[in-house]
Simulated scan of single mutants.
Amino acid sequence: MGELRTERLLLRRWRESDLEPWAAMNADPEVREYLGDVLTREQSDASVAAFQAEFDERGYGWWAIEVQATGEFIGFAGLDDVEPGLPVTGVEIGWRLTRASWGHGYATEAARATLIFGFTVLDLREILAITTATNQRSQAVMRRLGMTHNPADNFEDSSAAPDGPLRHHVVYRVTR
């Protein structure tokens, strides 16, 4: 499946023209606030190559998001296997948008399309979302999607600073 369409958005495979705005997003400390250090251009480009390879291998992954009316690249959304070594397993939904596109409902709109894809095309029974405990914006999107949080699923990222904002994580879930 190459693309998903919503009322306002196109979730599609990555293009060469996405590399520059993607790198700018990854160099923005506010966009990366709950993700860790900003990325170099090389790291950012490598992430897109990895996204493409994973998508080709599995048939799902991270789509680039563009606004249909303008063709503007505004970020990504999609599904990925939960990273090995975490205390939860399954398929995780995620999104990341440019700062200029925050507050317009794009994350929820793209994530809804992604959930539908996961449940109908991939026939998943459950989809998870993981974020830092301090990332209230993403948790609000998770709640709007009908996802629920069980505090028993919370975990600590041992690679993060013990008292840092990236240490404590929450898990939200939604079932088909």
Rank of each mutant, 00 (worst) to 15 (best):
T114M: 01
A133Q: 09
I127G: 06
V141A: 09
R144H: 08
V141I: 10
T120N: 11
L128T: 08
L124F: 00
G118W: 06
T134V: 13
T131L: 08
F155D: 00
L145R: 06
E156M: 08
L124I: 09
D123M: 08
N154L: 09
V121D: 14
A140M: 07
L145I: 02
F117A: 07
Q139I: 03
Q139L: 00
G118N: 08
A152N: 01
F119C: 12
S138M: 14
Q136R: 10
D157S: 13
V141P: 02
T114I: 00
T114C: 12
I130H: 02
T120R: 15
D123C: 09
I116V: 14
F155Y: 13
E126I: 09
T131G: 11
R143H: 07
R143T: 13
G118I: 00
A133T: 07
A129R: 01
N154P: 02
I116A: 12
T148E: 06
A133L: 13
R125Y: 02
H149W: 06
A152W: 00
M142D: 07
L115Q: 06
L124S: 12
L122D: 00
G118C: 13
T132G: 09
M142A: 15
E156C: 12
T120C: 05
N154V: 06
F155R: 04
E126C: 14
N150M: 09
T120K: 13
A140E: 11
F119Y: 11
A140D: 09
D153H: 15
I116T: 15
D153E: 13
D153P: 07
Q136E: 15
T132P: 05
E156G: 04
M147L: 14
Q139N: 01
P151G: 05
G118L: 07
A129D: 00
A129M: 04
T120F: 08
F119P: 10
L124D: 00
R125Q: 10
M147S: 11
I130A: 06
D123G: 14
R125M: 06
D123Q: 14
